[in-house]
C-alpha cells in the first residue's frame, strides 16, 4: 500500500492583492505519515501548521515541493477518497442535523444511500454523541456536540488517512478522553493519523511521532519517546533497596549490585518542557518570533 501522506520540501508564501510576497508561512518542510502512525504537528500560533495541513489536503496550492496522498496529488478526487478531515473551527452547516450532515458527506464521497442510516448511527455512537441529538439542528447543539458530529463525518467511509485539527476543542474532559481513545483505536486499526493540537498533554498521550514547527520550518521531529529522552541525565532505579542502604547508594557514583534488579534509563521530560526548549532554541538561533516569517518590505495591503 502506498504511503498515505508524503510531503517533500513544501513551501507556501502568502501574497497581497498585488501579488507581492507578504508572509512566508511554510519554508520547506517534509512530512510523512505511515499506516498505524499518529503524527502530531505542533507549533505556536502562526508557525504554519494550518497552512501545512491545508496544502496536504489540496485546499492551498504549494509554491514549491511535492505532496502525495496515497501516491496521487491531492487535487485528484481519487486521492481524497480515503481521507477524512476534521477542521479546526466548527464548520458544520448549522441548519443540518448530525444525521443529515453525515448523509451530506456520504453523498459527497459517493457512498451508496443503502444502509446510510445504520452507518450514520454507528458513527455517531462511536464518537459519543447522545442519541437525542441525532436529529437536532446543529444550531441547537452545543459546541462539543457539533464537534462530535464533525468527527463522525471525518470518519465516514473508513478513511485510511485521518487529519484532525484540534479534535478535542470544545469537548469536556470525558469527551477528550473518548476522542483520545478513538485516535488510539484508529492507530491500532492501521490508519494513519495526522493530528494538530495545542494541548500538549493530549498529544503526548496519543502520538507516536511529533513534528514541531516554528516559523515555517520543522525544528524537531521524531518518535516521541526518543525526543523526550533526556540524554544529559542518567537515572538509576533500584527496586527493593532497604532504607539504610539508600544513603550509600546516593553517595556512590556506581551501580550497587548484589543480586538486586537495577534499571538504568534516562529520565523523560514532559512534552511541554521539551516544546518550550525547542522554541527557546529557535528564537536564540534566528531571532524568529513564534509565528511565520514576515517578508521584509516597506508597506502592505490591508
Amino acid at each position: 500500500m502506498k504511503i498515505p501522506l508524503f510531503a517533500e520540501n513544501l513551501r507556501k508564501t502568502y501574497r497581497d492583492f498585488w501579488g507581492r510576497p507578504r508572509t512566508e508561512a511554510v519554508r520547506g518542510i517534509s512530512l510523512a505519515v505511515r499506516p498505524g502512525e499518529v503524527v502530531g504537528l505542533l507549533g505556536p500560533n502562526g508557525s504554519g501548521k494550518s497552512t501545512t495541513i491545508k496544502m496536504v489536503l489540496g485546499l492551498l496550492r504549494p509554491d514549491g515541493g511535492k505532496v502525495e496522498l496515497f501516491g496521487l496529488p491531492p487535487s485528484e478526487p481519487a486521492a481524497r477518497r480515503h481521507v477524512g478531515y476534521l477542521p479546526e473551527l466548527p464548520d458544520q452547516h448549522r441548519f443540518l442535523t448530525p444525521r443529515e450532515t453525515l448523509a451530506y458527506h456520504a453523498g459527497l464521497m459517493g457512498l451508496p444511500s443503502s444502509g446510510a442510516d445504520a452507518r450514520a448511527e454507528a458513527l455517531l455512537d462511536r464518537v459519543g454523541l447522545a442519541r437525542a441529538a441525532f436529529d437536532k439542528p446543529l444550531s441547537e447543539c452545543s459546541k462539543g456536540m457539533a464537534r462530535r458530529a464533525g468527527l463522525a463525518a471525518a470518519l465516514l467511509g473508513d478513511p485510511q488517512l485521518v487529519v484532525l485539527d484540534e479534535p478535542t476543542s470544545g469537548l469536556d474532559p470525558v469527551g477528550r478522553h473518548e476522542v483520545k481513545e478513538l485516535i488510539c483505536e484508529l492507530s491500532r486499526d492501521g490508519k494513519a493519523v495526522l493530528l494538530s493540537s495545542h494541548l500538549l498533554s493530549e498529544v503526548q498521550d496519543v502520538c507516536t511521532r511529533v513534528a514541531i514547527m516554528v516559523a515555517g520550518l520543522v525544528r524537531a521531529e521524531g518518535n516521541l519517546s526518543g525526543l523526550l529522552e533526556r540524554r544529559d541525565a542518567v537515572r538509576f532505579t533500584v527496586s527493593g533497596l532497604p532504607p539504610e542502604k539508600e544513603a550509600d547508594c546516593r553517595a556512590a557514583l556506581g551501580v550497587a549490585s548484589g543480586g538486586l534488579d537495577v534499571a538504568v534509563d534516562h529520565p523523560a521530560a514532559t512534552l511541554e518542557e521539551y516544546f518550550l526548549e525547542v522554541l527557546r532554541a529557535a528564537r536564540e538561533e534566528g531571532g524568529a518570533e513564534g509565528g511565520a516569517a514576515a517578508v521584509a518590505d516597506g508597506g502592505g495591503a490591508r
Binding site: 491545508k54 489536503l57 478526487p77 486521492a79 481524497r80 481521507v83 477542521p87 464548520d91 458527506h105 459517493g110
Partner: peptide, 12 residues
C-alpha cells in the same frame, strides 16, 4: 470555511 469539507471530499 465550510466549503473546505467539499474540497477535501472526492466529489468533483
Amino acid at each position: 470555511r465550510r466549503f473546505a469539507a467539499v474540497r477535501v471530499s472526492p466529489a468533483r
